[in-house]
Amino acid sequence: MRRRIIILCVMVLTAIPAWSQNIQEQRERKKQLEEEIAMIDKQLDTTAKKRKQSLNTLILTRKKLETRKKLIARLDSDIAGYDLSISSTNAEITRLNDRLDTLRKYHADLVRGAYKTRDSKVWFMYILSSKDINQGLRRWAYLKNISFSVRQQASAIKSTELDLQLENARLEELKAGSMQARNEREKERDALSAEERKANSMVVQLSKQERSMKRELQKKQKEVEQLNKEIERILAEAVRQQKSGKGQAVDYALSAKFGDNKGKLPWPVKGVVIQKFGQNYHPVFKNLKMPYNNGINISATAGSTACSVFDGVVKQILVMPGYDQCVLVQHGEYFTFYCKLKRVYVKSGDKLSTGDRIGEISLNEDGNAELHFQLWKGTEKQNPENWLR
Rank of each mutant, 00 (worst) to 15 (best):
D109W: 06
R74L: 09
I86A: 00
I133A: 04
A80K: 11
L103G: 11
D101E: 15
Y126L: 03
A108E: 11
D83E: 12
W123H: 09
V122S: 08
R99Y: 09
D78S: 14
I86R: 04
A73S: 11
I127R: 03
A73W: 02
L128C: 01
T94I: 06
M125D: 13
S88C: 06
K69L: 09
I127Q: 00
N90E: 13
Y115F: 05
L103M: 13
R118G: 00
D119K: 10
D101Q: 13
K131I: 06
D76N: 14
L128R: 01
T117C: 05
A114E: 09
K131D: 06
T117E: 05
R99M: 13
K121M: 14
R112D: 14
S120F: 15
I86P: 08
S129L: 08
S77D: 15
A73I: 03
K116W: 05
Y106Q: 12
S120R: 13
L75K: 05
K105N: 13
E92K: 10
S88G: 13
H107M: 02
I72A: 02
D83G: 00
M125F: 02
K70Q: 15
D76F: 10
D76P: 10
L75G: 00
A108Q: 14
R74V: 00
S120K: 09
L71C: 01
I93S: 03
D78G: 02
T117I: 03
T94Q: 11
D98Q: 13
D132G: 00
I93T: 05
S88W: 03
I86F: 05
D83C: 03
S77Y: 14
D98T: 14
I127E: 01
S130I: 07
I93F: 01
K105P: 01
L84A: 10
L96G: 05
N97T: 12
Y82L: 02
Y126P: 04
L96Y: 09
R95W: 02
L96R: 12
K116P: 02
L84S: 06
S85N: 12
S85H: 09
D132K: 02
D132L: 08
K69A: 14
H107I: 04
M125K: 14
R118H: 11
A114T: 09
D132T: 00
S85C: 04
K131V: 01
R74S: 12
G113T: 14
L103C: 11
D119V: 06
K69E: 12
R112H: 13
Y115R: 04
Y82W: 12
D83W: 00
R118S: 14
T94E: 07
R118A: 13
A91T: 01
V122N: 08
G81Y: 02
S88R: 08
S87N: 10
N90F: 04
G113W: 07
N90W: 05
D109Q: 15
L128G: 04
L110T: 04
I133G: 00
T94C: 03
G113C: 07
T102E: 15
